[in-house]
Nucleic acid binder design. Structure first.
Lengths: 222, 222
DNA sequence: ATATTCCAGATTGTTCAACAATATAAATTT
DNA sequence: AAATTTATATTGTTGAACAATCTGGAATAT
């Protein structure tokens, strides 16, 4: 296994650079769910010491991307159906709160508008990877309506786990396409300050999304 | 500084035992906010190696109780007014969601009922420490109405940070006393499935609580 | 006296080698 | 085939070491 490149000449500590790198790999589905990550092997793979890697593992475990079992090692999380349902429960609570927290002229609204346009552009150029990224950013912006760093952090963790699930599904191509329009509609309801309608819309949105993810999971495994 | 006792003959890894121990100390206000925790000193204090302690620090940092500044060290978080306001924003969103998620006969409701009784008992015996603990448990039980492990975890983190704030305030004695009755009333509204009223009640509740914490903070510092 | 530069000491970041404790896999016995 | 033992590999933890960075004070210049 070739050595992983760790350039990115930022001066942040090595352990955090590696953590970011592995996090990206996890989200991109470059590991098998449930796969064991051996300290010796991974440390060699990234050219870092075992002690430093253990700090990395602690980081990623606290972000919910790895599972640590004492004396057994760390494993890539393998989110099952119940994990996905839980993730959508979190989204439901937090994003519902975001709608109710929305206030006219909030900077997050401008960002959401810009992101819907970026999504359109990405679709036009058939850049589905970008469509997915922009979609995530749209929802992150929506949560930032709450003006709560801690809530945003929590949401980011859950979203990362969901992206890991996406990474496990084959052909994620058009997975996010239908949501471009839904995002636009949702944004319009929020900007029109129709909170009740926006919440109903959100509920249907999340339900649809959850079901499509669950279906794809079951298609994959059986 | 005497060596800290680490008995508790559970077979969990040393680093997690120490993490739990320091976490407790942090919540009990045994450290000064903003205080720097030197690796060398703390490692000696707990009789563990520096490498192991660094894993502990990573753990506690990810729980929001310590702050890590690269090349500078780790510091005890010193929550300011804006942190407290943020914490209450999180509580508002999540606990509002919990009320809306409440369903008749949910096991969490029984637990909440039991906890209000325990609170009464603790008050009768003037055990204010216990009143505080039971109060926290009541709100944790309330969040478990969502049936979402991830949401509960997020709430636990925020609550731990809030307890750390309490630990910094002097004479926390009767701090929680007025909430015993409020909890009971809130529970009644939830069990009566009067969601809208319960939410209004919760809003007033959290506002009152937030204001009393902020007032105590400003009284302390000026 | 005030500000800036420079240096020495302390602290963090990281590695390595070692060993104890635990888990895993294989070989052996029942 | 099941249970037990043995051997091997992995994790948990330590201590020492060194480079990189920070801190505080001394020396210098303004």
């Amino acid at each position: 296994m070739a050595l992983v490149n760790l350039d990115e000449q930022t001066d942040q500590p090595l352990s955090e650079k590696v953590a970011l790198r592995i996090r990206e790999m996890l989200i991109q589905g470059r590991f098998t769910p449930g796969e064991k990550l051996s300290e010796h092997q991974v440390a060699g793979q990234f050219g870092i010491s075992r002690n430093t890697l253990r700090e990395v593992f602690r980081l990623l475990t606290s972000q919910g991307l790895l599972t640590h079992i004492p004396n057994r090692g760390v494993f890539v999380v393998s989110p099952d159906e119940s994990a996905v349902m839980d993730i959508y429960r979190v989204r439901w609570v937090i994003q519902k709160g975001a709608i109710q927290a929305a206030s006219r002229g909030h900077p997050a609204l401008a960002r959401m508008t810009a992101l819907t346009q970026q999504a359109d552009a990405a679709r036009s150029s058939n850049d589905w990877q970008q469509v997915g990224t922009v979609n995530m950013e749209f929802h992150r912006a929506m949560v930032s309506l709450c003006d709560s760093p801690r809530l945003s952090l929590c949401f980011d963790l859950v979203l990362a786990e969901l992206r890991l699930v996406f990474g496990l599904l084959e052909y994620t191509g058009h997975l996010h396409e239908p949501y471009i329009e839904l995002n636009t509609s949702l944004l319009q309801l929020i900007e029109a300050e129709k909170a009740a309608e926006a919440i109903d819309f959100l509920e249907a949105y999340l339900l649809k999304s959850e079901r499509s993810v669950l279906a794809a999971m079951q298609r994959k495994k059986g």
